[in-house]
Design a protein around this nucleic acid. Sequence first.
DNA 1: CCTACCGATCGGTAGG
DNA 2: CCTACCGATCGGTAGG
Lengths: 195, 195
Amino acid sequence: MTSETRNSYGDVIEAASRLFARNGYEATSMRDLGRELGLLGSSLYSHVAGKQDLLVAVVERGGELFQQSAENALQIDGSAGDQLRGLVEGHITVVLDHRDEVRTFLNEARSLDDQHRKRVLASRDMYEQAFRDVIARGVANGEFAGTVDPKTGAIFVLSILNALERWFRDGGGMDRTQLADQVWNFVYPAIGAPR
Amino acid sequence: MTSETRNSYGDVIEAASRLFARNGYEATSMRDLGRELGLLGSSLYSHVAGKQDLLVAVVERGGELFQQSAENALQIDGSAGDQLRGLVEGHITVVLDHRDEVRTFLNEARSLDDQHRKRVLASRDMYEQAFRDVIARGVANGEFAGTVDPKTGAIFVLSILNALERWFRDGGGMDRTQLADQVWNFVYPAIGAPR
DNA sequence: CCTACCGATCGGTAGG
DNA sequence: CCTACCGATCGGTAGG
């Protein structure tokens, strides 16, 4: 960071996602962000129209990553269990490869204006719907026992996945494969799959 | 709210927890809080020494509620499954009966100074340890299959429980008993209990 | 609990 | 991307 060359729009968004993730949107000033990029706060206004725009850009990026991940997983031609595993692994990858955008997407959406916040909530609902549909399909075809309501089950699975950002660290006691296995070993019986 | 009588310290803390939960600590000004109580921002300084003190008080209250809940659950004289169910139900009750303190405890601890934030993280670790110990006991005595590491399993269970604050509403499609059942139907097989 | 403030910092702008 | 600002708001204080 603080390289010698000129900053691009992408650099600004990246630095913003870093600071929003670390300190929160409200606690990040335009001067903080300028310092991170090696320029003055006022100079940022040649890159963006305002502070809100930065939050919108970062949050929308987070939403796109999850949406893209779901689309990929749903193209898997297999059982409900196969697709759910694809959704789970895709989510883990997004969280771990894009921590800052994900943190901002999950925790800072409340600082958006009404219009953009509603759009984010709608995109989360669509994403949750993918989990719900796959679980419901598994219940309908007898693959899962149906002891948990698909809607509630989807929320529980996503609760586990979204919380990863809060505790998992690369280079800790568990690598990503082990993490995915632990999540799956927990989630698969939980939604009523045979053992 | 905004009653005619004088405000007590408890009133101030309660209003603070409400605003911190709704808008976040950073986005809540002392003038906002004063308005909520029917007085000026500057008048709050006869009740508290500073804004940080309010956050400390609210967050510590949240921590105490969870700690108390765990102590009660661990007094259950029964199987690991019985105690885990007690921990789960206690957590649900704390979250739903004390939403504002819990939200602040879970989401605003980052705004604490280093010293207090470390204390909060330590209290969360102790609480998590209770879940871990109960799961480990169930694995050790053969009650649970042990397909999930107790430490990771504890985090997953708490991820589900802590996320309740983000989506569950009393008076929605599910009452509290149904919620507790859904959580338990998900968690119990997940940690490797027999079906 | 109010009046009357204070210095610091905020997001943002005009003009280069 | 900088200089030189602006009005608004912030946490907080002195004195009653």
